[in-house]
Design a protein around this nucleic acid. Sequence first.
DNA 1: GGAAAATCTGTAGCTACGCTACATTTCGCG
DNA 2: CGCGAAATGTAGCGTAGCTACAGATTTTCC
Lengths: 302, 302
Amino acid sequence: MSGGDPSAPPRPGNVLQAIHERMADLRPSERKVAQVVLANPGRVVRMTLAEAAQAATVSEPTVIRFCEGIGLPGFQHLKLELARNSAFGVSATHSVIAPDDAPQQVTDKIFEYTLTSLDHARRRLDPATLAQVIDLLAAAPRIEFMGMGASGIVALDAQQKFPLFGRPCGASIDHHQQYMLAMTMEPGDVLVAISHRGETRSLLQVVEAARARGVTVIALTGQTGSLSAAADVALIVETLDNTNVFTPTISRIAALVVVDVLSTAVALRMPAAKTERLAQMKRALTCMRTGGSQSGDEAAVC
Amino acid sequence: MSGGDPSAPPRPGNVLQAIHERMADLRPSERKVAQVVLANPGRVVRMTLAEAAQAATVSEPTVIRFCEGIGLPGFQHLKLELARNSAFGVSATHSVIAPDDAPQQVTDKIFEYTLTSLDHARRRLDPATLAQVIDLLAAAPRIEFMGMGASGIVALDAQQKFPLFGRPCGASIDHHQQYMLAMTMEPGDVLVAISHRGETRSLLQVVEAARARGVTVIALTGQTGSLSAAADVALIVETLDNTNVFTPTISRIAALVVVDVLSTAVALRMPAAKTERLAQMKRALTCMRTGGSQSGDEAAVC
DNA sequence: GGAAAATCTGTAGCTACGCTACATTTCGCG
DNA sequence: CGCGAAATGTAGCGTAGCTACAGATTTTCC
């Protein structure tokens, strides 16, 4: 109960990131403290002030001053904030997978990395752009999702969700088909172009062709680039991409969650009648045992 | 640095859940403390021992005894654990999406819910089963992924990852095709059957047919059920599924992350030569600008 | 280049927070 | 109705975290 907490503290975002940013403003000995904290946040949580000071080879007050330097009122609060962040375990930058890791370690690291990245993506998401995209999607007579490779998976997933809300929409993961579809679209229709790097040339071709026809193009991408420049609206889903070979691409997970957000927000715009139809369908799907094709044909309620 | 932390505490999982479970063993006045903590964990974090005692209308030592009762050594540790859990803001049960939510609220709630659910899935994942699945996949001459609907997306995603590690594998989201594929599989081959509820009848048919042929069947499902019973090994990916119509299904996200874990773990088993080939391919994909079809044809390194 | 000033860092002491030993009360049971 | 055991509150202690001050170091300006 009492969901809203007005006395909630000003969200300082990721503390570790804040430390990184304000590192320059810190005094030399305070930086030694920062090093220790960044190196092993999880351990600092279990440290006492004296221990932390000893670990950084500085005196206790220096540690306190470090806390104040990064905008925290004291050491206790630092530990609390650190505990919040270390909910995901070790900080993301350190969860590089080593070839000799045990399955349990691999699991921990990947989940950790995924959680941290999603958290990061959430913070970096621009609310204004998001709202704009929702408006466009809610008003579109027709929606097409397009992407290649991993982004193709996102497109297919989006296609599975949006029709539920009464929006005719499709998805394509083939260049030729994408091009042909683009040519059948009308002004006012929305094309959602998905590409993590935003440089996939074949997709850019399709986007250009669509825009020439007056189609509204929404880019769902991981960074500013050719795609975001070519689109009418660019929704940037920023993820932490470290370059380790074994670290799986998190980008599609983040994109999927964003698609969840979009589809849900669009659904909320729908009149109550359609919402009811959706609930009905969901009940039907839940009870469905036959698991028919994905074409979405309405099965009888069990 | 110092990735392994041998002095890590015994993972108490979700503290709030632990409190719920041990509620019966608690003394009457300690339960009053539990009420306060469960009602507003985020606020208790910022409380002092005296304040917490006052809020529960008990004395300080009672609060301490409460901490000991739930397996924590003291009040400080309780606050720390509470901070860990409130990392995602409000607890998951409260993030039910209301029809009049603003886009920003929808975003927050969905991300929050996703993060909490993933965290939950991680804790509930059985390491032994996971290790067993990895062994099976690493040894399999051939792997097929099958699923319907949302689980079909997971199957397609898995298919995109595993071939990179030199494993011939396929994915199918069509019942007829699945059945035919099952009939072409040989003893020792692995069929990964994906279904969140684990009751999709058409998939169960395929599983039975495959097992009759001596194929090893791995179930990737959200709960124990018909599928987990029918399979050789059942990997349960437990998610928090509240039944709100607008709450998107988290199951596929969790399943995707588990697929990440599996593919990465299998990749680590590969000899260095193949690992090198993978790195090479990833470099090529990164530089690829043409974004050819998803068939995985090797593009020249740019 | 030297001296003064400002800034940074460590020492000492204080407040109070969290924890433990003990007394009191309350409830169950013979 | 009285005894015993459990449960709860009171008092006091140790220590952790924070503040005032002084010494050391670097910077700056003449």
